[in-house]
């Protein structure tokens, strides 16, 4: 990453952090309903990997903690916020919600709310890319707990047997909802579980974006060059509970303190200050600008947008006027 890249990504990660924190506030104000899973703490994972990939060109799919991945792929943050507000201008026209952000134009293939569900979907997208002879790859971001689903094993097996261009990124935040990984999972290092499928796998620090970027570059190059699937494990931590309905009482305070000292944004900021690429004042000005953008453009847009019409409740259940429903084009 060049110094200019690092400065840009610092702002993008800061934006993602403030965006998620603002979602928290809107949820408390009851402007956002349903379940809300926030990303603070894990930013270097999505940004580091996607810096090494080609956002908007490569296909990305993930679980329900999906806002930031969508935005990094190119989704308009206004449309993402409007989706959380349940508005017609939302990325899924208010039909999806926080857990189902989609932006197909930018190849963000969606957030899915069944843990482990995207594993085979990502392999299928990779199959399609291979059939089309595309140089795009399929990237699947999921948490460590998803690896205890059968789809993890089924998909790794098929991806290897059919040599599919898919990169599985495991954001290991050490908790599956409220259960710590060592209490639910026989092997804590997730990359080791992949050895049974003869797929190359690596583990790196998910808090240091430069390390994520370097590891992801190797992973992306491997997949893009036609060598088949790759598995990248990123050790990370989420600052909040699993979702907004999680009291987060199950984690030791000293563990939370330890991880807060390894904040991905602060680590990159301090590195850039030390290298005299930015000053602390630059960072503060950046933060102010981000907060203003979120408040004045994004929240305002979501607030002002109309709700979907009840008259269109049944739209999007099935295709509109598909001719084959009546037996062909006549």
């Amino acid at each position: 990453m060049t110094p200019a890249d690092k400065k840009r990504v610092l702002r993008e990660m800061l934006f993602a952090r403030r965006f998620e924190e603002r979602c928290y506030e809107a949820y408390v104000e009851r402007k956002i309903g349903g379940f809300l899973h926030l990303y603070p703490g894990q930013e270097a994972c999505a940004f580091g990997v996607m810096e090494a990939a080609r956002p908007g060109h490569d296909y990305v799919i993930t679980g329900y903690r999906d806002h930031v991945h969508a935005i990094k792929c190119g989704a308009d943050p206004k449309a993402v916020m409007a989706e959380l507000y349940g508005k017609e201008t939302g990325s899924s026209k208010g039909r999806g919600g926080s857990m189902h952000i989609f932006d197909v134009e930018h190849h963000f293939m969606g957030g899915y709310a069944l843990v482990g569900g995207p594993f085979p979907l990502a392999a299928g997208i990779a199959k399609g890319l291979k059939m089309k002879g595309s140089d795009a790859i399929s990237i699947c971001f999921l948490g460590d707990a998803a690896n205890n689903q059968g789809t993890f094993h089924e998909s790794l097996n098929m991806a290897k047997v059919w040599n599919l261009p898919v990169l599985y990124v495991c954001e290991n935040n050490l908790y599956g909802i409220g259960t710590r990984i060592d209490r639910s999972t026989a092997v804590i290092d997730q990359y080791k579980r992949v050895s049974g499928y003869d797929i190359p796998a690596a583990q790196t620090d998910g808090q240091d974006i430069e390390k994520v970027y370097e590891a992801a570059k190797i992973a992306v190059d491997h997949v893009r060059s036609g060598k088949g699937p790759y598995f990248l494990e990123l050790m990370t931590y989420r600052y909040r509970g699993h979702s907004m309905s999680d009291s987060n009482a199950y984690r030791p305070k000293d563990e939370e303190r330890m991880w807060s000292k390894r904040d991905p944004i602060i680590m990159l900021r301090d590195r850039l200050i030390e290298a005299k690429q930015i000053t602390l004042d630059d960072y503060k000005a950046m933060d102010t600008a981000v907060l203003e953008e979120i408040e004045n453009e994004i929240i305002k847009f979501a607030e002002a947008s109309p709700e979907p019409s009840v008259d269109e409740l049944e739209k999007y259940v099935l295709a509109d006027n598909d001719p084959y429903v009546r037996g062909g084009k006549h």
């Binding site: 085979p120 997208i125 059939m131 998909s155 097996n157 098929m158 047997v161």
Partner: peptide
């Protein structure tokens, strides 16, 4: 073999794979 595919005995996996492929035109 690329178009008439013998799958492993993994019904949820290969059904999901087919569904994912259909997202992009397969």
């Amino acid at each position: 073999a690329e178009r008439v595919i013998d799958t492993p005995i993994s019904e949820n996996g290969f059904t999901g794979l087919g569904i994912g492929a259909s997202f992009i035109g397969v």
